[in-house]
């Protein structure tokens, strides 16, 4: 089995309180996430991308269709802990995700709840903090750290559960440029070096460009799905659904409109510079 997550004809409806009507947030979504892959999910506010993410680790359950995490049906309540352990989640606000007064206690919190023996917990705390480059801060109080550091602690807390997959829901939205870079570097490292499957929900197109694959959600459906190059070349379609493209794609698009034949697969600064310097 090579799929970390399999989504088959997923429909999800919210119940609106005032009139009791069911409002569809997702309809007919089919999506497979391969093990070890790095997928970015983009879409405007209210497109359904966060709802999709929450369906990926049983925080929400389908109204119709099926979601399998590591082969487990998320609707099967007896498998809930297997699912949550396989697919961890990191949210936007680091302050809401930290529970202890000392960094290493915070990391140990998850494994302790799994009933893991102390020697093993110690080992996991060390490895998790090293994976996010925060081992030197193990004795510090989380609230005295910067936003990017706090978010890396939150990520370490998830890693200590040894998940095969981590779902990030806009992990950098509240961070400054340096904090954003710290977190993005950490995410890439977890994918490349630890082989953890990554699903990244983001509004930052330059972050999405770092993934192997981009899934664009619009009106509760998959609007585009492909490599960053194949997605970002569709500048007009992305604009129509309220999204932007990375600055380099924007410049390439403008140059093309002026009759200059810029290759379509240029999406990063390096590629643009190489093209202009050839």
């Amino acid at each position: 089995m090579n799929n970390m997550i399999e989504i088959k004809d997923l429909t999800f409806e919210y119940n609106r309180e005032e009139d009791g009507k069911n409002i569809p947030a997702l309809s007919g979504v089919d999506l497979n996430i391969e093990k070890g892959s790095f997928t970015a999910v983009i879409g405007h506010n209210g497109s359904g991308k966060s709802t999709l993410a929450k369906n990926m680790n049983a925080l929400l359950l389908p109204s119709g269709g099926k979601v399998y995490v590591n082969g487990y049906d998320t609707a099967d309540e007896s498998k809930l802990w297997h699912i949550r352990q396989a697919a961890g989640m990191v949210f936007q606000n680091p302050d809401n995700q930290l529970v202890s007064a000392i960094v290493e206690d915070d990391i140990a919190f998850g494994p302790e709840n799994l009933g893991i023996e102390p020697g093993e917990i110690k080992k996991r705390v060390k490895e998790s903090l090293q994976a996010v480059g925060m081992y030197d801060y193990r004795k510090k109080a989380p609230h005295l750290l910067s936003g990017g550091q706090k978010q890396r602690i939150a990520i370490a807390g998830v890693i200590a559960m040894r998940p095969e997959c981590i779902i990030f829901d806009e992990p950098t939205a509240m961070l400054d440029p340096y904090g954003r870079k710290e977190v993005m570097d950490t995410i890439r490292k977890l994918n490349k070096e630890e082989g953890i499957t990554i699903i990244l929900i983001t509004h930052f197109m330059d972050e999405a460009a770092l993934a192997d694959r981009i899934v664009v959600i619009d009106e509760g459906k998959i609007a585009l799905d492909g490599t960053p190059k194949s997605v970002f070349v569709q500048v007009e379609k992305l604009r129509k659904i309220g999204l932007e493209v990375p600055i380099v794609t924007e410049i390439a698009f403008r140059l093309r409109n002026k009759g200059i034949h810029v290759p379509e697969d240029i999406i990063s600064l390096e590629e643009m510079v190489n093209y202009l310097c050839q």
Binding site: D176, P177, Y178, D206, I247, V248, E250, I251, R254, L269, E270, M272, V273, L276, C277
Partner: peptide, 29 residues
């Protein structure tokens, strides 16, 4: 000091580094 630069400026600085004659004090796309 941990801050970034406007993206357009980053691009110009990279071109300059590669020996292109461009102004690096630009701010917009």
């Amino acid at each position: 000091i941990g801050l970034g630069l406007p993206p357009a400026m980053i691009l110009m600085r990279m071109l300059k580094q590669r020996g292109k004659h461009v102004y690096t004090d630009i701010l917009t796309i």
